[in-house]
């Protein structure tokens, strides 16, 4: 008669060995994944495409509950929010009128200086499928892939600023690594002092400022934008604001609330033109603003123009 205990022990031991083998296999997978092999990248892309609808469907209930929480929260402060928005509209109207006069001035100056025109970027906007949170990875899956011309390395933006860049592309989905991820490094400059630096994610809510000159004196609340160094990101995209920690170190707080990301735009650069075409005959000035367009705001002499020129 054979008792059940030794056979149980044997199976337990063999299961433990198998467990150990699988852990070793996972370790080798981690290292292989880090090598960024094309085959692994393609498999990841294919599986992301395959799992995207399931993930979206499974995320939907929690997303809806989060929406309810948000609604309840905002309903309590509707009156205050209304007053705040009204004052903000007034402020924005003043800024808008100043901006339109400055824009006109800027166009004239650009024309005088024969400034190289900016490349027009083609943008596609897609919906975020997954939640961005994670301890070890801060990425988002979007529902646009190779079929929309998305490629690895293209910058991802939202109306508030830089979101990240594309790291993996499938046929119908793409993965975007967020700027808060530990593997993300963005060349930036401090807008007040023009000092260049690099910001690195820390898998938290703040970005570490690296390679900033010792002469630079960041100001708390100073805006930080992409510098365009390296050619990966266009210059002038908002990244965030400088904040000072208790220890006296400076960090950058991203201008985007990554938890509320619903739509993400990808700069696909489809119609990017070569800098110097074959028939290059000097820098073409920017087009003058059409005379029919009414410039609401202040003119150069400071007089306010409200009605169109034709009227």
């Amino acid at each position: 008669m054979v008792s059940g205990k030794p056979s149980k022990l044997k199976s337990f031991k063999s299961s433990r060995n198998f467990n150990f083998i699988l852990i070793l296999l996972c370790l080798s997978l981690v290292f292989l994944g880090k090598l960024d092999l094309i085959a692994i990248r393609n498999i990841k892309g294919f599986l992301s495409d395959f799992l995207a609808p399931i993930t979206y469907a499974l995320n939907k209930p929690v997303k809806e509950i989060a929406g309810v929480f948000e609604d309840v929260k905002s309903a309590g402060s509707l009156r205050e929010e209304n007053i705040r928005l009204k004052s903000e509209i007034r402020k924005l109207n003043v800024i808008n009128s100043k901006a339109s006069s400055q824009e006109h001035e800027l166009l004239e100056l650009r024309e005088l200086l024969k400034v190289l025109p900016k490349r027009k970027n083609q943008i596609i906007t897609a919906r975020a499928i997954t939640a961005p949170g994670g301890i070890f990875a801060n990425t988002v899956l979007i529902n646009a892939g190779k079929d929309y011309g998305v490629k690895i390395g293209q910058p991802a933006i939202s109306p508030l600023g830089l979101v990240g860049f594309v790291v993996n592309v499938g046929i119908k989905t793409s993965r975007i690594i967020l700027i808060i991820d530990i593997n993300s490094m963005i060349p930036i400059y401090l807008t007040s002092s023009n000092w260049p630096a690099i910001v690195q994610g820390q898998s938290g809510e703040l970005l570490k400022i690296k390679f900033l000159s010792s002469k630079a004196k960041p100001i708390e609340g100073e805006m930080v934008q992409t510098s365009g160094h390296g050619g990966k990101f266009p210059s002038g995209i908002n990244v965030g604001k400088v904040v000072k920690s208790f220890s006296g170190n400076f960090y950058v707080k991203p201008s985007i609330d990554f938890q509320r990301l619903t739509y993400i735009s990808i700069i696909t650069n489809k119609n990017s033109l070569p800098i110097f075409p074959k028939s290059f005959q000097g820098f073409a000035p920017l087009q003058k603003p059409k005379s029919s367009i009414s410039l609401k705001g202040l003119n150069l002499s400071g007089k306010r123009i409200i009605e169109s020129k034709e009227n």
Binding site: I23, C26, V30, K44, T130, L141, N168, R175, I177
Partner: peptide
Amino acid sequence: DIITGANLGITPI
């Protein structure tokens, strides 16, 4: 790991 975009093999470990 595929869904979250983490390094392949981290969650199984």
